[in-house]
Nucleic acid binder design. Structure first.
Lengths: 165, 165
DNA sequence: AATAATGATTGTGAAATGCAATTATTTCCT
DNA sequence: AGGAAATAATTGCATTTCACAATCATTATT
């Protein structure tokens, strides 16, 4: 049983990109995470093209959250996204404008709003789920099956830990 | 010898963030990468605060590339960053304006430019390296030593593979 | 009842980003 | 050699993103 992921570059082998060495960044988690984000986001944008939630960070998460948690408040979405409320408010504006979710004032707290998915929004959410799953299959197909769980677990762990800080 | 990373959440355990479930995103590489990027970038911004290369993606990489590759062309930097040339041009403008690098027309090709680090730029590059290393130590300290190489190798691999597409 | 805290919106300005058009130089092709 | 095509880079927008301050309404605290 192999202890290391399949076919990974050796630790001492320099990382060459476009013929250039990456200096300290070569050994930096932060660099790869930031660079990967750009590529993954670009790819996801392409896949979502035409769908009302295309481009930008947040709309997809917000839509799925509303679909999965009827009556959710904007501030709860802001907490997950780690964004401020003005930003989240405008995000919700666009989802409402596009007829994906609806916004009513909450019955138990009249300051708060209660967000619910519309039938159309639910359809879009379903399509979003399909696209996300498809991207996972197609875009990340180079990750060997036996490495997937471990890699995902590490990312999860990093995600949950860094959120705390 | 353990085969799995230390203390990782079980695969079937739902990921709860701010009390909410994440739907499909919970199992999506893309979600964690995108979310991690936001946190890591924010943290890096804080650490670089005051330094002429703070905030934004690209200045750090560009500075280190110029420092490590005297005479490098803007287009080479654009290739590494996967950005268009106008964008890269303006990035270089700011580095030049701040006295970190200097720009001359290349001798072998008068269309092209040749970028070189200034003494001040080199100093900043050194400080950037120290900060990056420090972030790796402090921010990612939750990754168990025995997991680090493997996690980094997976990220590297993902990075290199996704660049090809 | 007065004050503080909470949930959300509006206003605004600074950056980031992306596309099209332009200029200058070099390479390629007859 | 001469002209077309390709390459390196810049300039000029037009959009979008994003954060901060100020404001308004409602609820909680004392």
């Amino acid at each position: 049983m192999p202890e290391n992921p399949t076919d990974t570059p050796a630790q001492d082998e320099p990382v060459i990109v476009a013929g250039l060495r990456l200096d300290v960044l070569e050994g930096a988690f932060s660099y790869y995470i930031r660079a990967l984000d750009a590529v993954v986001s670009r790819d996801l944008d392409r896949r979502m093209e035409g769908l009302e939630v295309a481009r930008g960070k947040g709309k997809i998460t917000a839509l799925l959250l509303v679909d999965g948690h009827p009556g959710i408040r904007p501030s709860a979405i802001a907490a997950v996204l780690m964004r401020d409320r003005p930003w989240t408010g405008r995000l919700i504006d666009t989802l409402v404008t596009r007829g994906l979710i609806e916004r009513t004032t909450s019955t138990d707290d009249q300051r708060a709003q209660s967000l619910r998915i519309t039938p159309h929004g639910h359809e879009v959410a379903e399509r979003v789920r399909a696209i996300v799953r498809q991207q996972e299959r197609e875009f990340f197909d180079f990750i060997a099956p036996q490495d997937r769980d471990q890699f995902l677990a590490q990312l999860k762990r990093a995600y949950l830990r860094t959120r705390e800080q």
